[in-house]
Design a protein around this nucleic acid. Structure first.
Lengths: 224, 224
DNA sequence: TTTAAACAATAGTAATACTATCATTTAAAA
DNA sequence: TTTTAAATGATAGTATTACTATTGTTTAAA
C-alpha cells in the first residue's frame, strides 16, 4: 500500500505511465539524478539503463525520447509549484501577501517537504534552472504546444497573473511579470553560480534568500 | 579592396579567422541562414558543407564544432548591439534618454543598417531569440566563461548597468535589470510567436514596437 | 615560377538515437 | 495452482552524427 501522491500529467508526454511501476519510478528518479549530475546533453537512455540495471529498450517503452522525458520532468515541477502555491495561499485573502507567498514558493520550491519519494525536488529544481528553457526552444514548440505539453506552465503563469491583477488592475503586463518572476528566479540563480558578472545576486551554499528579496523588490516597485 | 567593417571576437572561438576568406565568410553567412531556417539542433556541418559546396573537413578547419560556431555568432551579435548603442548614444547626455535608446537598440537591432554584407542581422537576431540561451546552458559554461567566451555579453550588461545607475543610484539591482532587458526582449518576442499565453505582448508581421513599449514601461516604474 | 597555404575528396571511427525480435520473468486471472 | 498476458531483459542491428586522418589539387603569394 502506497501513501504517495500521484501527480497527473499530460498523457502525450509518455508512452506508458511511469508512476505505476517500479521501473517507471526508477526512470524518473535516476534521470533526475543523472541530468542534474551530467547535464541534459550528455545524458542518454543507454547510460540511464546501465545506472538502473535495465535496458535501453525498456526505457523506450516509457518515453519516446529524452526530450519528452525532460518535458515530463518539467511538467512535474510546474505542477509541484502550482500545488505548493495553492496550499500555501489557501485562506490568504490579501493579494499582496499571496504574491509574497508565490515568490517564496518559486524560489524555495525545492526546500519544501518532498511530496514523492522517487523525486528529488531539489535536484529537479536544478534541472529546471539549467535546462528548463530547452523544453520550449525547439523547432517542434508549436506542435508540442498544441498537444498541451506546456499547459502546466501556462496555467501557473495565468494564476500568478490573476494575483498581480488583483494587486494592481492598472498594471499593463500581468503575464509578462508573472513569467518573468519564474525566468528571473531561474536565470539569476544560474548567473550567480556561473556568470556572476551578469547579476547583482550572490549565492553561497545554495542560500537563495537574496533572490527572493530581489523579486519582491521588483514586484513592489512595479505594482506600487 | 573591402569597405566592410571587421568585428573582432575572442580568438578562442575559432580555429582560423573566418572573416579573412571567402569560405570563412560563407560559413558565417550560410550558418546564420540555416540555423534560422531549421534550428540549431538539426543544423550540422555536413549540411552546411553541402549548402556552400564545400566539405565537412574544410569547415572543421574554421570551427571546432557547431557549439563554438554558435558562440561565435552570438558574440558577433552582442558586439553589434554594443556598437549600435555606442554610436546611437554618442553625444546624448541625459541617462534616461540613453536608456531609451538602449532599449530601442535591443529591440530593433536587426532593423538597423546592416554593417556587414555576409551577416543577415535580422536572421541573426532570430537566432539570438531562439537559441541564445543554449550558449551558456551547458556543462562547459564555467570553462568557457573563463576563456572569455561571454565577455561581449558581460561588457554589454555592464555598460547598460552604468546607465541604470546614473538614472537612479539607489536602485539596488542594476545588473539584474540590465540583463533582464535583454532576456525579456528575447523571451517575449519568442513567447508572442510560439507561446502567446505566456505574455501580454502580441506581434504581427514582426512589428516589435509593443516590446519596446513594454520594456520602457518596466524601466520607468523600476527606476522612478 | 616556385612553393606553401587553402581547400576538396574520400574514407573511416566512435557514439548516439533509436527499432526489432525473441526469451524470460512477474503478477494477475481463471 | 495453473494459465496467460503483460512487463522486462537480452541481444542485435540501422541510420545519423560528430568528428579525424590522409592525400591530392587548386590558388595565390613570394
Amino acid at each position: 500500500m502506497s501513501i504517495g501522491i500521484k501527480i497527473s500529467l499530460n498523457e502525450g508526454l509518455y508512452l506508458k505511465e511511469p508512476q505505476d511501476s517500479k521501473l517507471g519510478r526508477n526512470i524518473i528518479k535516476h534521470s533526475i539524478l543523472m541530468i542534474d549530475e551530467c547535464g541534459f546533453e550528455s545524458f542518454n537512455f543507454k547510460k540511464l539503463a546501465q545506472e538502473i540495471n535495465s535496458t535501453e529498450a525498456s526505457i523506450y517503452r516509457y518515453f519516446e525520447n529524452k526530450h519528452l522525458l525532460l518535458l515530463y520532468l518539467l511538467n512535474w515541477y510546474w505542477e509541484w509549484v502550482s500545488y505548493l502555491i495553492s496550499i500555501n495561499t489557501m485562506n490568504v485573502e490579501d493579494p499582496k501577501k499571496k504574491l509574497k507567498i508565490i515568490v517564496h514558493s518559486i524560489v524555495f520550491a525545492s526546500k519544501e517537504n518532498p511530496g514523492v519519494e522517487y523525486v528529488n525536488e531539489s535536484k529537479l529544481h536544478n534541472i529546471v534552472i539549467s535546462e528548463g528553457m530547452k523544453a520550449y526552444h525547439t523547432k517542434e514548440v508549436d506542435e508540442e504546444n498544441s498537444k498541451g505539453f506546456f499547459k502546466s506552465y501556462k496555467d501557473l503563469a495565468k494564476s500568478v497573473s490573476h494575483v498581480i491583477n488583483e494587486i494592481n488592475p492598472k498594471f499593463k503586463y500581468p503575464f509578462v511579470l508573472a513569467t518573468n518572476l519564474f525566468e528571473m528566479s531561474n536565470n539569476h540563480i544560474y548567473f550567480a553560480k556561473h556568470l556572476p558578472k551578469l547579476t547583482d545576486i550572490s549565492i553561497q551554499e545554495d542560500q537563495v534568500e537574496e533572490v527572493e528579496e530581489m523579486l519582491n523588490y521588483f514586484v513592489e516597485r512595479l505594482l506600487a
